[in-house]
Design a protein around this nucleic acid. Structure first.
Lengths: 220, 220
DNA sequence: ATATGTGAAAGAATTCACAGCA
DNA sequence: TGCTGTGAATTCTTTCACATAT
């Protein structure tokens, strides 16, 4: 039974990776936990703890070799390869996500786009033809899609999620502001933009900050 | 010194509120912590604890009066009024956020839009004229903008954030995948979509789920 | 009978502090 | 000396369990 990794650790690993990338680009050879902490908005001890979950990557007295830690984290996070992604919802949000450079840079490839709107079905999005959501059962297994991004209206989200799960998708990133039900075996993450804005409204109204953590992590 | 409210509690309050809205719409009179828990993906005890931070809203043996709890939560979250918001970044993501219905429904009003691109400056977005980011210092205080949504490329984010803070914005919702620096007094939340996708990649690669919480909250 | 509100207990995550190694 | 790796201590969050109220 492998150890249980806190979700917050994984988030921070992504942040460390981001900083390592920048520094490697800049030709930096080594980095300290202190600097990684700064870049991720956490403490050096936290950085070391996070990394220690996966092994021992540093050199005492010196720090971390940028290149090595970079590739180690890449591998740990599963970013040493490409991922085939489906996008459901070809509206404004879907369109923005489709051309979101940061996804592409990280190896996420949107290889299928679905929508219900007959007006949109058939459109060519940079080489990917928008198809009807009814085609999910045939297209998803066929193109070996591994994860899906859901950018549909709230009312449609659960139905689409069911279809995606049925079609064998292993993970869903949901942008609709609803709680989705899915089997335990399917990974589910929500990006709830309204929730975040509401958090700010709450904070402003109170005039004060909540837990110290609130300034550091998203929320996500 | 008022009590310290965990960020996770605030997030859940938003979820409860969402469900209460639906149920009120449906004519429901009372609700139990059990049902609220289900809707938010948590436990009844958690619901009661969350609410108990702010007071005592239920009736023993009966549950919560939908209408009352709804308006109480609305007030607690600062959603019983409108908020003036600035949007910086008139690209694809900015455009999607501008017309995001759920923001509008919650009382968030985008009253100013900024971009650097001279091509976009001057455009009329549904009654709001896109202005140059250089106009932030004059427009933001003038229109009494209280919070800002940042949808600019990573490299530009910190500069814009500085300008917004300088102009008196109290809270920033950042969509750029960078760690922003801001004074303690300014609330800062990040929506890091790449981080979420990477979390899914990590999970798929491992073939297993992390903490039980990971299935419930965003992340955020 | 039923379902809340809340101290007490358990469980997680973070921080401390220092031994260990270049 | 400088900085990592890690048990121990601390702090934060969630769950339990029951007294309390209708």
């Amino acid at each position: 039974m492998s150890k249980r990794i806190p979700i917050s650790t994984v988030r921070r690993l992504s942040l460390y990776l981001r900083h390592l990338e920048e520094e490697e680009e800049a030709g930096r050879e080594t980095l300290s936990s202190k600097e990684l902490a700064q870049a991720a908005g956490t403490t050096p001890a936290q950085v070391r703890k996070d990394l220690s979950v996966f092994g021992s990557f540093g050199v005492r007295g010196l720090g971390y070799a940028v290149r090595d830690l970079h590739s180690a984290l890449q591998k740990i996070l599963g970013l040493d390869r490409e991922w085939s992604v489906a996008l459901v919802g070809a509206g404004k949000v879907g369109g923005a996500l489709f051309s979101y450079e940061t996804f592409r840079n990280r190896g996420f490839r949107i290889r299928a786009v679905f929508d219900v709107d007959p007006e949109k079905v058939g459109d060519d999005w940079n080489g990917v033809v928008v198809r009807d959501v009814g085609d999910i059962p045939s297209v998803v297994p066929n193109r070996e899609i591994e994860m899906a991004i859901l950018a549909v209206p709230p009312g449609a989200a659960q139905g689409v999620a069911d279809a995606l799960v049925e079609a064998g998708v292993g993970a869903i990133l949901n942008f609709a502001p609803v709680k989705l039900e899915a089997p335990e075996s399917v990974l589910l993450r929500n990006v709830d933009m309204t929730l975040e804005l509401e958090g700010l409204a709450f904070g402003l109204r109170r005039g004060s900050v909540a837990s110290p953590e609130s300034r550091r992590l998203s929320s996500s």
